[in-house]
Design a protein around this nucleic acid. Structure first.
Lengths: 340, 340
DNA sequence: CTGAAAGCGCTTACAG
DNA sequence: CTGAAAGCGCTTACAG
C-alpha cells in the first residue's frame, strides 16, 4: 500500500514546523493568529500532496477514535439492517464511523462484543440489549461508557434509550381489531423478561380488559431458540381451541414465521384468522392478503440514538438520562379487515 | 470512561520492564526464552488487571489496523445485509473488524467512501463496484491497496474477485422456462456497463439462440435512478405487445419491484406470465405463487472474499489475481411452472 | 533471559 | 505569529 505523506513531511516541504501545519489543518489558524497567506499556503500544499492525518496517531494522542460501536441482534434482519443504514449515515454526518456487530440475542456474545468494541477504542456504544443483559448495561453505565439503548430499555436504569412506545402499539392494534368486531384476540410473543415485549403484551391486555374481554386474553410465548417448532405448537394450540379470530404477532420475525405456518396449513387471512404484525416488510405488502402492521419511525429512532450518543461523548458531564418513546403508527391492510 | 491500565502500569505493578510484558503478551515468550514462571506471572497479572492493549498505539506502531473496509451498494438491502453479516463473522475469526459503508451505486460516493476508509487506516477493502468505477479500482490496485471485488468484477483488471457465474445463472433460468414450454421469454435488467448484469443478459441470449428463438429475444433496460417509473413503462410495454409469456428479473430489487407492479395490475403468476427472479427473499416464498429464483452461495461468496483479502494483506508479495465464479442454483417454485 | 531507548505520527502546552 | 519539545501507549531492534 502506498505510504501517505506525514505531517512532518508536509511541514518539511513547506519549510515550516509541524506545529504550524497541525494548527492550520485543525482550523485553529485564527485562534493562533497565523497569517492568512501562510494559512492558504499550508492548506494548498496539504491538498496538493493529498495529505490526510494518520488516524491511529491522532487517536493515540487525543484519546478519541471517532468510532462508535453498534450491537444489534442480527444485522441481516431487515429491521436492523434498515436501522443500521440510518445510523451509519447519521454518524458520518458527525464525522464518526461505525463498527457493527450482531449478538444473536445471546448474553455471552453481547459481553464479548462489548469487550471487543471497547478494546478497539470506540468512543461510545449503541446497544440493542438482550435478555439478561441488565447487569452488563448497568456496569457499562457505572463505568461512564457513553451508551444508548436502542429498541429496548431497562426501566430501572438511568441509561438513555431510543425506543418505541410499545404499550401504545398493541393498544392501537387491539382497539382496531375490536372495532372490526373481533373479540377472540390472541397475541404471540417471545419468552423474555425484556420490557419491549412485555409492554406490548401489557398494551394488549389493557385494551382487552377495558373492552370487558378479560376472559378472552390469550397469550402464547415462544422460545426464540426454537422459534420454528414452537410457532407450530403455539398456532396449532390457538387454532385447535377454536379460540382465536385474530392474532397479534409482536415482532417482525414472529410475523413472518407465523405467516409461513398459516400459509402451509391453508389458513386464510383474514377469512379464517385476522393477523397484525410488526415492522414494515415487503412480505407484508406483497402477500395475497396484505398484512396490517405497526410502523416504527425508524429514521427518528436511529437518528435520535446517534444524537444522544454523540451528545454524551462530546459533553461528558452530561450523564442525564435521555429517553425517546416514539409514536407507533398502525398501517391497516386487508389482513385485519373484517370481510362483510 | 474508565481508563484502562497501560502496559507500563502493568509492568510497573510486576516490577519488570514493559518490553518483557509486551513480549509475553504477544506470545513470543518461547522465542525470547522467557522463563515459564515469569510468563505465567505476566499473563495472570494481565488478566487480573483486565489489561488489553491500546489499539491506537498498536496500530500506530505496527502500521496495521486489523480493520477492513467493506463498501456495498446498500446495507439495508437484504442481499447485502446477509452478505455483510457473513463477512463480519468471518473477519472476526481472523481477528479483524469491519467498517461497512453504502455507496448507493454512486461513483462519487464510492470514491469518497474509499478515501474515508483508507484514511481510517483500513488494511484492505472489499468492494461492490458501481458503474463507472473501473478507473478507481484500477488506481487502487496500482497503489497496491489490498482489494477484493464482490458480486461484480472487471474482466480487464487483474483484481481478485468473488462473484457468481452470472452467465450460467440465466442459462439455467432460460432453459428451465423453455422446458416448461415458454418461448416468448423477456428479461428485465438495469442500464449498466457492469459485467454481472450483462453476463446475465448474455446467458439468456445464448440459451434463446441455441433454442432457435433469436427473434423472441426481448430485453428491457431500466435506469436504477428511476427504477419504479421505468419498471412500469417496461412491463406495460412487454405486456401490451402480448409479447411475453415469461419474465426474468435480473436482480432481487428488480424482482420485488416487478412483483409489486404485476400485483397492482392483477396480472396472475404464472397463469398470465411466469416469473423468475434473483436471490432468496421471504417475499418470494410467501407470495401466493411462490417465485422461482437463482440462489447464490452467499456463505461461499462472502467467506472467499474475506479469505482472499486477508491473504493479500498478510502476504503482500501475493498480488496474483484470485477469482471465484461460483455456481448458481435454480430454486424452482410455482411461479415458473406451466399449469397444465 | 531481561531492560533501556528509539520511534510510529500526531497535538498541545510552553516559550519567545 | 511561529517553533522546539514532550508525550499518547505500544513494539522492536539493540545491548548485555
Amino acid at each position: 500500500m502506498k505510504k501517505r505523506p506525514s505531517l512532518k513531511e508536509l511541514a518539511a516541504s513547506l519549510e515550516v514546523s509541524p506545529t504550524l501545519v497541525s494548527i492550520v489543518l485543525n482550523g485553529k489558524a485564527k485562534e493562533y493568529r497565523i497569517s492568512e497567506e501562510m494559512t492558504k499556503k499550508v492548506i494548498a500544499a496539504a491538498k496538493e500532496m493529498n495529505y490526510s492525518p494518520n488516524v491511529a496517531a491522532r487517536n493515540l494522542r487525543s484519546g478519541k477514535s471517532n468510532l462508535i460501536g453498534v450491537i444489534v441482534t442480527d444485522i441481516s434482519n431487515p429491521f436492523y439492517s434498515t436501522i443500521s443504514r440510518i445510523i451509519e449515515d447519521r454518524a458520518n454526518e458527525f464525522n464518526y464511523n461505525v463498527l457493527f456487530s450482531s449478538s444473536d440475542e445471546d448474553l455471552d456474545s453481547t459481553k464479548n462484543l462489548v469487550e471487543v468494541l471497547l478494546n478497539k477504542g470506540v468512543d461510545g456504544l449503541i446497544l440493542v440489549p438482550c435478555d439478561g443483559s441488565e447487569g452488563l448495561v448497568k456496569n457499562l453505565h457505572e463505568d461512564d461508557v457513553p451508551l444508548v439503548l436502542l429498541d429496548r430499555y431497562f426501566p430501572d436504569l438511568a441509561v438513555s434509550y431510543s425506543c418505541l412506545n410499545n404499550f401504545k402499539s398493541t393498544q392501537l392494534i387491539t382497539q382496531h381489531l375490536l372495532e372490526q368486531g373481533y373479540q377472540k384476540i390472541s397475541i404471540v410473543a417471545y419468552v423474555t423478561e425484556m420490557t419491549h415485549i412485555n409492554d406490548r403484551i401489557a398494551g394488549y391486555e389493557n385494551s382487552m380488559i377495558e373492552a370487558g374481554l378479560k376472559d378472552e386474553i390469550s397469550i402464547e410465548r415462544i422460545d426464540i431458540a426454537n422459534a420454528k417448532t414452537e410457532m407450530h405448537g403455539a398456532l396449532k394450540n390457538l387454532i385447535k381451541k377454536g379460540k382465536t379470530e385474530a392474532i397479534i404477532f409482536t415482532t417482525n420475525m414472529l410475523t413472518v414465521s407465523g405467516i409461513y405456518y398459516l400459509n402451509a396449513n391453508n389458513i386464510r387471512i383474514p377469512d379464517d384468522i385476522a393477523v397484525v404484525g410488526f415492522n414494515r416488510n415487503d412480505v407484508f405488502n406483497l402477500y395475497y392478503s396484505p398484512i396490517s402492521y405497526i410502523k416504527q419511525p425508524l429514521e427518528l429512532l436511529a437518528n435520535e440514538a446517534v444524537n444522544m450518543l454523540i451528545d454524551q461523548i462530546q459533553n461528558d458531564e452530561n450523564k442525564r438520562k435521555m429517553t425517546l418513546n416514539s409514536e407507533p403508527e398502525l398501517v391497516i391492510q386487508k389482513s385485519s379487515l373484517r370481510m362483510i
